[in-house]
Nucleic acid binder design. Structure first.
Lengths: 209, 209
DNA sequence: CAAATTTTTGACCGATTGGACAAACGTTAG
DNA sequence: CTAACGTTTGTCCAATCGGTCAAAAATTTG
């Protein structure tokens, strides 16, 4: 489907980019149904009919946004390789995911919103591309367990726990800030989180000795 | 504010309960702005004007729902005591939270939705009641660390990680199911999760020996 | 430049939504 | 039974929403 690549003028490329940036801001803050075309148009600095000249329907914006998101969002997991030291590999995967939560919180929230609503628009991708990728990486992790490089557990739930703990700092940011308060909730909270998660996934909570 | 307790007839009590149950279903699936009074009314088996006789505004339903939610939602953390063995206390806190994700996924999603949107309606509670409770329990945990009962880490981030990992199974349920597939995504996934989380929080991933 | 094409805008439309209201209908207490 | 009160419904309204359209303005092309 979708035929050949649609030729786009310079203005079209620029304006579409502008709209997608504005839509990311609005959608991630209000969800799909909670966002209006007017809001996006205003955030993009143009009129509603003008925006609709570049994207015919509200859904088209969301769809385009979602397609782009998924590629970058799964990049860290794709990088998880069999070549390095297992424990180091996992540690840097966690670090990369936490950095994404810090640097792209809007993308994380957009994704969370979609999943929360039952993933109506990306269900096929979850069952297809995503499942395949996770199964593949789970196999790699299982290999490490068999080789005695890391403790034996469920690789799938391990991946879930990494997703959950890292994305929490983007998706539940307001709660994290509120609980930590003005002093501890500042810029340092991601470093604190990184240190904590490293210890958790490495040694757990059992006291040494 | 809110004066004395509003007397309610038997019918009022029943119908309000019915509406709140229906609203929980609808709100948790579609978010606040994504839900319509008509949907809630239909789910509650009554007409829209009839529903509006019991709750004057859509927001009133949401507010009532949210107030009730918060009490039950924080109950597990409130139970975290200084009396038992620290490691056992933490383990049963994790278990209770996971059970809540299993038994009350709609409540979890309602809460997640609210936080994702920036917690506009419960911000004071987060900075007040919630922060106080967490700080209090963080102090308890710190005591355990000082006593050498559990490893030294950041108690706040420890609590966050427990929230994140357990609620993940409610909020991201569709994703979890999609990735695990038909066989592994069935009823057993919560027991698998429980086993995994126990090991993670106890020993981490470092191989034994 | 001028014609062709692309971009922008204001005005408009039908559908949906939250909510108001008065009238009809039930229920209950005296 | 009946009057008072509580409940339910049909109808209606103003606001908002996603989206259309034709015409004006700007840009590109020859």
């Amino acid at each position: 489907m979708e035929g050949s690549a649609p030729r786009r003028t310079r203005i079209q490329q620029e304006k579409r980019e502008l709209i997608l940036e504005a839509a990311l801001e609005v959608f991630s803050a209000n969800g799909f149904r909670g966002s209006t075309i007017d809001q996006i148009a205003e955030a993009a600095g143009m009129s509603k009919p003008n925006l609709l000249y570049y994207f015919r329907r509200k859904e088209d914006i969301h769809e385009t946004l979602m397609q782009r998101l998924l590629d970058t969002w799964l990049a860290p997991l794709r990088e998880l390789d069999d070549i390095g030291d297992p424990m180091t590999e996992l540690r840097s995967y966690i670090r990369r995911k936490l950095e994404m939560a810090r640097d792209f919180p809007r993308e994380s929230r957009l994704f969370a919103n979609e999943i929360l609503q039952g993933a109506p628009r990306i269900m096929p991708m979850l069952e297809g591309e995503l499942k395949t990728l996770v199964d593949e990486k789970a196999a790699v992790i299982k290999g490490w367990m068999r080789a005695g490089k890391i403790a034996r557990t469920d690789p799938w739930h391990l991946i879930f726990s990494i997703w959950a703990t890292t994305q929490h700092y983007a998706d539940f940011d307001v709660q994290v800030r509120a609980v930590l308060g003005a002093d501890r909730g500042g810029d340092g909270r991601f470093e604190d989180a990184a240190r904590f998660l490293e210890q958790l996934f490495l040694d757990g909570l059992k006291p040494k000795g």
